[in-house]
Each structure stands twice: as structure tokens, then as C-alpha cells.
Design a protein around this nucleic acid. Structure first.
Lengths: 352, 352
DNA sequence: CGGCCCTATGTAATCGATTACATGAAACTT
DNA sequence: AAGTTTCATGTAATCGATTACATAGGGCCG
């Protein structure tokens, strides 16, 4: 016998209050536990009288089904894992909110994993999914994980439904929710060119990043469409952070023949870059035009306000969550969703 | 018999790969399941030979303990709930990261609940904790929940370890991790006064908010210390968002005798407010000084860069997580931790 | 050398809900 | 009227790990 008593109603436990179990409800409603379970899961299969008694007993006892027991038996956790590279990044938080909203409405909880560039954490979360702690996952990090250990025997890898958000995962046969980064970047580039800019710098994301590759491609497309030639010297390395923008700005300031416009592939970089330009006494957009990407909240209130590409972040999160829920509930799920972006014209870009 | 086979090794299941169970490991290592369990939980109570065989079998099978089964038996979830009012708010994301880091290191996962001002969600998450889905919770929302239903019978409310972060919860006997809002606000106010400002506006947080009450108190303290009289007309309502700052700015711009300095109780409001001032042709800090609170990333790169109060956000998250882990593991936990803030002097505030 | 204790291990109860199968009564069918 | 179907419900197996208790062997003491 264990140290914890059982078979008593919760009220008999004296000091240590224990949650009501399905048995307590069954006893109170004078039915079997099976009937209680059915009254909740498939009400139409229970007589109205029994159902009423059960519901009353549930209210009386304050019964809430034990999720661990339920999961153990039914193999469903009603939990979703969200994997992202950096929780502290402004860009993600509104996406998360969209995800959370939609999951919540469907009765799912959200577990967050901030990878933080650590392979160790990645391995941990691979095990996490394998252990059946979540029913599915939304990946914002641009690659699958758990591809590791192939050593001894059968790694017993379990595959759960996955959805890729923002960063498409090449070769993975899972729903991809994204924007058309290439087209958006091309559009911005053409916008700059249409205002007379011939020398346009590009502040990139991390080279390995899919987003970066697409946007870079779009940048080159845009140049070509505008009849401009691509100049590798005008590509500045970045990683989407404010600091990267600051550094790129220092690079620009130090140059003798500066470009007349800079296309930053994130708003954070654009804001950091403008900061450096101001400190060096340059004015935006009079001396140099600056464009961003993402349309985060601060873009509209930056000084000058930032011309950028608007991404529907909340909707992206919602769409990803919906797609995953479809998968989890056995419904057909869209293979690829591309949400519309928008060119938002503000004050940081001016005609040459 | 159920529809799912059992008692076979996972490799016999053909197409649908199933995770290895403790039984599979036991069979392979030629020991009982109890020994496997002990080899993991209390290695010193298992002979070195058996332990070695078990570990080998675990590697071979890729065994990961089933969390649902473990939770069901041991009543521990190794999950922590983080409750916050708004996930999309920049201020929280770095705190979250601090929490996540610390929880992760201790082997805990993090479930996030964005309350979004919805009582419905609050009730849901109260049930969540009651159902034993998490071992503890960190509250960033300034109040306890689940205080609701007191109606029929015994509501069977379970109390789990809690920690309050940032927003102290009056009357709750739980660890509180925070900064000294009152002292910090007083300090900023005195700073403004020391530069010669006599007419200082205050942009508040939500009136019901504890943070707001403390900061407001601090603001009045600061005025008093500086020998200035408090003028209710100089208090502008806000809610910590960019938009609130924009609105407060409009109010200020419309006034005939404007204050010479504005103390915003969040950086987001300060940035929104500066935006409005610029649009109206006012210059910061030449025409009006603006101070913020929080020191979010954008404060340093705003134009002009923002004088503000630095909050150690990551450390706040870490401290809260540590305190909760202490509680969960039965160690004594500090009742109240106050982390140091810092007055960060930048360019948005100038002498009169 | 018999009794005692300690160590290593196994057996099986247990956590709480779900659900396959069994049962019995009522409602149809021919 | 006998047989069949349907419906409501109960019984008990099951999910997978933990752990109280039982047991067996070895070492030690008097």
C-alpha cells in the first residue's frame, strides 16, 4: 500500500485537500465511472437523467479530469510545442500571441521552447516531443530537429504533426505558413529604385537562414527589374538584431562613397542603423534613405517613421495554429499558406 | 482488449513505431521494471552490473520515460505555468527568457498563459492549475486567480506553489520578486527636478495596477523631496502601450502652458509620446524633456535616445524561476527579492 | 552455527481516466 | 412469438511508471 490513502471521497482527507476523481463523481451521481466519462465525452450516448445527475455531481465536487491519467490512456496531451530561436525578439511576440489565441480556443495549451542557439536544448526538446509530452509542434526556427543520434539500435523516434512558420523547411513534407519574402523584398527594392536610388545597400540576415536567402534573392530580382546592377560591396552582414544594425551603420558611415538608400531586412536593424547615422550627423531620409522589414510596433513611431514591409504577424500565428489543429484532429490541412504583405510607406525613405 | 497491441517490443509493431517502454528496457537488460526505474532515480541502490546493463538497454532502445505515466504516479509534472497580461508586450519577452533559461536548467518546462484581460481565460487557467497540469506558477499579472466559484459543495481548490513577479500581490503569502518602483520613480523625478524642471508631467499606468500606484507614489515623493508641489492636471492617463503615449502626447501638444518635462512610466509610452511631439514640431529635449521607465532595447536607439530607469529584466525572470524551484523542491525560498534599478542618462532629458 | 541485518531485486498495487466488451432491457421486425 | 437490433450502463483491462512490500542471499556477530 502506498502512503497516500484512496477510495475515500476527497472530503474525508482532512487537511490535505485532494482533487475530486471520476470515482467521487460516479459515487455521488450513483453511476459507474464509465458513465461519467461518457457523459463528458459523448453526452448523446448517456440518458438525459444520468447526464443531469453527473453534471450536478461534477459541479458539486468541482471535478476536473486529471490530464495525466487522460493522456496516459488516450495518448493525447492537448499541448503544443512552439519552438523559436529567440523569445526576446520583438518580431516573435505578436506571432506567439496569435498562436496562443487560436490554440486556446481549440482547447490546447502552449509550451514554449526558446532554442537560444543551443544544440543541447534542441536535443532536449527533440526528446520532449518523442516522449509524447505534446501532440504537435510549430517550428519557427527553420529546421527540424532530433535528426541527431543514429547510433545504436532503433532510436525510436516518434513523429508528431509539425507546422513550419515563417521559415520554410526545405524538403519537409509539412504545412508551411509564410509570406512571400522574395516578392516582398523585390517590391521594396523596386520602390527604392523608383524613387531614383541607384546605389542601394542591403543589410542581410544570417547567411544560413532561409528567410535571408529568399529576401536576398528578392533584392537581386528587384535590382534587375529596375535595371540596376548588383554590387557585392553593398551587401552588409547582419542578423536581424538592433546591434547588427548599429554595426552596419558604422560600416556605412566610414565609407567614402555611400549608397543613397539602405534596405535592412529587419526593422530592428533599420532602427539600430538609423541611430548610428544620426550619431554621425547624417540625416534620414535627407542624406540617406532607410527601409526596414517586418513592420513591428516601433516602426511607426521611430523617428523618422520607418518605411517597411508589413507582415501580418498575428495572422501568421493564427494560421499556423489552425493548420496544426487541423492535422491533430485528422482534418486535411493546407500544405502551404502564403499571407499577403504590404509595402508601408512612411518617412524614412525619400526620393533621391 | 484494446485496439493497440502490447507486451511486444517496439520493433514488432511494424509500421506504427511506438516509443520504448520501461518494460522493453527491463526485458533487454534482463531485470525487472522496478530495477530500471531505480537505476534512473536512485542509481546507488542498484548494483553496478545491473545499472550498466540498464543504461545500455536504454541507449539501445532510445527509451525516454513517459511523462504522463510518471506524473500520474508521482504527482509531479515538471511544468511551470507563467501567467502574464500581454505576451506581445516587449517588456515581458526578456523576462520570459530569463524564466525559461532557469527553468530549463532545472529540468522544468514552461507553459505560457497570455491572459489578454479575459476573465474567461483566467478561469480556464485556474482550472488548469487545479487539475495538476503544472507543479507551480509564476504570476506576472498582479493578482491571484481561481478565487471565483464558492458555490456548491467543496470547490476542491488545490493550491500550488506560486511566485509573484514584478507586480507584488498584496496580502498573498508568496515570494515576491520585484524592483523598488517607488524609489526608482522618485529618483527619476528628482533627476528631472535637479535639472531645473519645475513643471513635470506624469504619464501613468492603469490606475488599478500596483506598479502604477508605487510609481505614482514615488513620483510624488520625488516632487516633495525636490520641494515641488503636485499638480493633478499634470497627470495623464496611460496603460504602458505605445498608443497611450501617442494619446498623452496629443494632450500635451494641445495645452497652452506645457510642462517642460514628462515622466512616462514605460519606455513604450515615452517613445509614442516623442513621436507625437515631433509630428507637432516640438523638439526633444530642447523644447521638452522626456523620460521613460524599463530600459527596453529600443530605448538606447530611439531618437533621441531615452533617459530611463533600467530594470534587470532577465535577472528578474531568473530570480523568480529560482525562487519557484526552491519552493517546488522543498527548499526555503526568499520571501521578497528586490533587484536594483539604475538611472540611465541619455539624450531625451536636458537641463531647462 | 543460528539469528540478525543489509543489499539487491522482484512482484504487484497504484495513480485516474478511457474504452472494449458484456449485459440486460426495451423496441422493432417478420 | 421468437429473433434481432438498439440503447444505456456496468465491469474490468489498459495506458506506463513508481514504489511499498516481500524475498533471497550474503556478511557479521555473539
Amino acid at each position: 500500500m502506498d502512503d497516500i490513502g484512496q477510495k475515500d471521497g476527497p472530503e474525508q482527507r482532512g487537511l490535505s485537500i485532494r482533487a475530486a476523481r471520476i470515482q467521487d463523481v460516479a459515487k455521488l451521481a450513483d453511476v459507474s465511472t464509465a458513465t461519467v466519462s461518457r457523459a463528458l465525452a459523448t453526452p448523446e450516448r448517456v440518458s438525459p437523467e444520468a447526464r443531469a445527475r453527473v453534471l450536478e455531481a461534477i459541479v458539486k465536487t468541482g471535478y476536473v479530469p486529471n490530464p495525466a491519467a487522460r493522456t496516459l490512456r488516450s495518448q493525447k496531451t492537448y499541448m503544443v510545442l512552439v519552438v523559436l530561436p529567440d523569445l526576446a525578439n520583438t518580431f516573435f511576440s505578436k506571432i506567439l500571441r496569435g498562436i496562443e489565441e487560436t490554440l486556446f480556443e481549440a482547447g490546447y495549451g502552449m509550451i514554449i521552447s526558446d532554442l537560444d542557439g543551443s544544440p543541447e536544448k534542441e536535443a532536449h526538446f527533440a526528446a520532449f516531443t518523442a516522449a509524447g509530452r505534446v501532440d504537435g509542434a510549430i517550428l519557427l526556427n527553420g529546421h527540424l530537429f532530433g535528426q541527431s543520434r543514429e547510433g545504436e539500435g532503433q532510436p525510436a523516434r516518434i513523429s508528431i504533426p509539425l507546422v513550419a512558420l515563417c521559415e520554410a523547411i526545405p524538403g519537409a513534407d509539412i504545412p508551411q505558413i509564410e509570406i512571400d519574402n522574395r516578392a516582398a523584398a523585390s517590391r521594396m527594392t523596386q520602390h527604392l529604385a523608383s524613387l531614383g536610388h541607384r546605389s542601394i545597400a542591403y543589410v542581410s540576415g544570417p547567411a544560413a537562414n532561409i528567410l535571408e536567402r529568399e529576401r536576398f534573392q528578392g533584392f537581386k530580382d528587384g535590382l534587375e527589374t529596375a535595371g540596376l546592377t548588383f554590387d557585392p560591396a553593398l551587401v552588409l552582414p547582419g542578423d536581424y538584431t538592433i546591434e547588427a544594425g548599429v554595426l552596419a551603420g558604422q560600416d556605412l558611415v566610414a565609407r567614402s562613397n555611400r549608397p543613397t538608400a539602405v534596405f535592412c531586412t529587419s526593422d530592428e536593424m533599420a532602427i539600430g542603423l538609423m541611430r548610428t547615422l544620426f550619431s554621425a550627423g547624417l540625416r534620414v531620409p535627407d542624406d540617406i534613405s532607410v527601409a526596414g522589414f517586418d513592420d513591428i510596433e516601433f516602426a511607426a513611431v521611430a523617428e523618422p517613421s520607418l518605411t517597411t514591409i508589413h507582415q501580418p504577424r498575428r495572422e501568421l500565428g493564427q494560421a499556423a495554429a489552425s493548420a496544426l489543429i487541423d492535422l491533430l484532429q485528422g482534418r486535411p490541412s493546407p500544405k502551404r499558406i502564403r499571407l499577403e504583405t504590404e509595402l508601408v510607406i512612411r518617412d524614412s525613405v525619400a526620393p533621391l
